[in-house]
Design a protein around this nucleic acid. Sequence first.
DNA 1: TTGGGAGAAATAGAAGGCGT
DNA 2: ACGCCTTCTATTTCTCCCAA
Length: 212
Amino acid sequence: MSDKSPPGLRQNPHRLRDRADKNLEAAIGRSVRRHRKQQRMTVHDLAVKTGLSAGMLSKIENGATSPSLTTLQTLSHALSVPLVSLFEGYAEPRGAMHVRAGEAAEVERSGTRAGHQYNLLGHIGSNGSGVIVEPYLITLSEHSDVFPAFQHDGIELIYMLEGTVDYRHGEELYRLLPGDSLFFDADAPHGPEALIDLPIRYLSAICYPQNG
DNA sequence: TTGGGAGAAATAGAAGGCGT
DNA sequence: ACGCCTTCTATTTCTCCCAA
């Protein structure tokens, strides 16, 4: 097989799929076999019911092949289970980050004011959704500047943990108490305007488009 | 954007292996 | 020996690349 393409620039249809790629097939196979056994059916019984060959069913149950959508639909009908139930047990790896109390990274965000302590609670790259989420624990001390001036792309959620603050969003002013939340378009000027009861701590999750 | 060629993968059916 | 399942081989279908 000739390969004139620079590596990584073109899709290679001849690429052999590695073991990890077979997770989905294996999960489908286990699911089919479990449902078949539950209904006291043999491979032959299921083959008759679906119109598939017993050999094909064997490969499907052993994760040795990727059945077509039509085949999966046929199987779900024959087993009297929802199509999606054949995908039970398959989970793609998802990013997760555990930050213990007191271990959050202290960061500086452009535009933050004196006395505003930002602790980044975790960060994972975009998971393909095209959305970035930044969770912060924010602490305001008596020395904090208090005029609202933040303005950035995306949407922000604030959840009050401690203290009381008058928080401005655009033309509106909201008094936030512990347990209150504020969900708003971050494109409007926003920020704490009056520190009523110190110390003030709140969680802030900022969501914005990856390419925004 | 579309159609054709090439190759990979899915599928069917037969043969073989294994346990009881 | 029989039932159940897997493996092997041939055929069909699907996907990708590339030229027009």
